[in-house]
Design a protein around this nucleic acid. Structure first.
Lengths: 140, 140
DNA sequence: AGTAATAAGATGATATTTATCCTGTTTGTG
DNA sequence: CACAAACAGGATAAATATCATCTTATTACT
């Protein structure tokens, strides 16, 4: 009932990249260092982001990672979706699963709404807003 | 990012019990059979529910499990909380964790609201309502 | 006593998550 | 060209978490 650490790493990565001037690359090493993440594992995460089209990578010197989307146009919901795949609060909600005709599945509707509510929240603020907040942040 | 199966079993159990006349016991065997759950594992789950005070057990003949709360006064949120403990969408939100002063934790607020939104949904309908729906249910 | 029922500890089986290692492949630089 | 910098990706290991079962109590009714 938690986001995986990989999701968290992905979110942090996107946030770092969102704070960069548009079109600029940042290296995974730098991200790993700034956020104190295991570099190799982060690389895997970046690959996922890249395959999902959120990010673009470039090898070799002066390579790195950069956004392919505008920070103003993506949200945490997008990143979580990319990393964790289709979210299903319960197998009951997963694709292709056919609810047995049992009383328990009355629950189905509620879980579905709960999940929708959560995703809606996660989709409310863009990374641009998140990154912006960061500059003059207040101690939480 | 999913409820555990144990949570699901617990929900189904509470639902079965909610459909019983008040004060009546149902045996774990019966619940397991009706819902097609592994009996022994279900027992563990019931123990958790019992320790959380949602349910009461009685050993020996004519023993079983019954609610200690009114179906109209509990929701899926309560059951999930009992089984999964304090929910935290992210370590960041867990008790005692102190956010490093890093940009990523801007995310904190959003995750918190998302989680709250989800729990709010899960707390909207009581088991009385769920069990009621069940009697004249419509094929979903 | 005997039987029906849950309690609880130990243990095992999987599955998932997290992490690392190693060997490519790409790309700029001297 | 040769080299170094940086990501790509397969294999594998380590750590957890989840799911399940077995066994031995303990409780309570008859």
């Amino acid at each position: 009932m938690q986001l995986t650490r990989q999701s968290e790493y992905a979110i942090r990565t996107m946030l770092e990249l969102s704070m960069l001037p548009e079109g600029e690359f940042m290296q995974s090493r730098t991200i790993a260092a700034r956020q104190e993440l295991p570099e190799q594992f982060l690389n895997k995460t970046v690959q996922i982001l890249a395959r999902s089209g959120l990010v673009e990578t470039r090898r070799g010197m002066q390579g790195g990672i950069r956004l392919t989307v505008k920070p103003g146009e993506i949200t945490i919901a997008d990143v979580v979706a990319a990393v964790e795949g289709k979210i299903a609060l319960n197998p009951c909600l997963a694709d292709g699963y056919h609810c047995a005709n049992q009383p328990a599945c009355r629950v189905h509707g509620i879980l579905k709404r709960a999940q929708a509510a959560m995703l809606a929240e996660l989709g409310k603020e863009t990374f641009a807003e998140l990154a912006g907040e960061d500059e003059n942040r207040i101690t939480s």
